[in-house]
Write a protein that binds this DNA or RNA. Structure first.
Lengths: 218, 218
DNA sequence: AACGAACCGTACCGTACGGTACTAAATGAG
DNA sequence: CTCATTTAGTACCGTACGGTACGGTTCGTT
């Protein structure tokens, strides 16, 4: 796997993709016409077809391009203290929320979901492996570090990760996808982050390390 | 506004909507053309436009029609035992999962999400208030009954509900919307239901009523 | 039986989009 | 300077879909 990918798009192509993304963000899929992209990016339709094959190729390229921008940021491998783990979990949750509530992420997810029903679930798969994949891997690594440090107790990492994800996101992602104003959702998110991490630690924290006075609501 | 709603659709119209739904399930939005619906339902395009106004009206009618089929099923108002509450929570989670993983639900959500990006988030709002609304109300009623019976301890019902939802669904809904095979997801769901309820009760159960031997993972 | 409303089937129109072909200008090599 | 390559800009084609109009048919009402 020395060079499994184009390793990037040409600067010109990146600029075009950037323009296409911003065109998608405002106006949705129906606004993303080949002529519109060509006009907005000051390029010709012929170039578009030469570079990306056809419209679906352009969509796929947009997803790949956006995915190539996320920093995977593999965290530490050393031993963790309680506070470090908690802080890392918190930043993970906050990063996750930021990504999911971002304009381009929402637009791209809407695009992929909208055309997932038809025969070609190609975009959906791209979205899953390029978007969810890395995020999940990063979280799993963090959880595993927590377990190795004796701070977390679980047998199935994927299960633990899904629990954390559910606590952090709940149905807010779908609601945003359906059109709830992102600011509204973000406000909800803000207060959810700490509560989600708290709850997660109560569920999966190693018993003797995390147990607190038991009652929160007193 | 003496008659704000038709309070239903005519049998003929219901049959047409049913056909449109099944047409949407297989083939996605692009397969849902007015001509196609007319052909599949053995009706004329003119009737479609007479009944539903335009294509968007048809889509909205499909959502309203599907929503009118869910039984809201307001549960008991009496006192609950621990086992009853647990059973009710479990059936709620299972029903929720069944609904979310259903073909028509997925297709309708894809449709609404797909066109939520553009100016008209009309369908998304419909989906939220007609779909999520009733389900949430039912869950909140159940949680409130649990609290009144002294089995649950929480201050904000909405927060508790979102936690339950997140534990039960996690990211599986979005993954299904993106095209993950529903059977795969459903298999994951099956084992999640009990774990979700377990976790929820550990988080929100009144302390002296629910605490168990503490460790599940042996 | 006669009338009228509703409706099916189809044909039709305008438009908008995906995709292609062609020309002119720019850029770089020899 | 000349030639070759690339790309912007435009014009064009085929198609598919949303929406409308119209003739023929069924069905209920009187």
């Amino acid at each position: 796997m020395s060079k499994p990918e184009q390793d990037q798009f040409s600067p010109r192509q990146s600029a075009v993709l950037e323009e296409a993304l911003s065109l998608l963000v405002e106006g949705g899929e129906k606004a993303l016409t080949t002529a519109g992209v060509a006009r907005a990016a000051n390029c010709s339709k012929e170039s578009l077809y030469k570079w990306f094959g056809d419209r679906d190729g352009l969509l796929a390229a947009m997803i790949a391009y956006q995915a190539s921008k996320v920093r995977t940021y593999e965290p530490t491998g050393s031993k963790l203290t309680r506070e470090e783990l908690r802080a890392h979990l918190l930043t993970f949750v906050r990063d996750l929320v930021d990504v999911l509530s971002g304009d381009v992420s929402l637009a791209l997810n809407r695009l992929s979901i909208g055309q997932a029903g038809a025969g070609g679930g190609k975009l959906g798969r791209l979205m899953l492996e390029r978007g969810r994949g890395p995020i999940g891997k990063r979280a799993m690594a963090l959880l595993d570090a927590g377990r190795r440090s004796g701070l977390l107790d679980f047998s199935d990492g994927g299960e633990a990760y899904q629990t954390l994800y559910g606590l952090a996101v709940s149905d807010l992602h779908v609601r945003m996808l359906l059109g709830v104003a992102p600011e509204t959702a973000r406000k909800e998110f803000g207060s959810r982050a700490e509560r989600a991490v708290d709850a997660f630690l109560r569920l999966y924290g190693a018993a003797n390390k995390w147990e607190e006075p038991r009652i929160r609501h007193a």
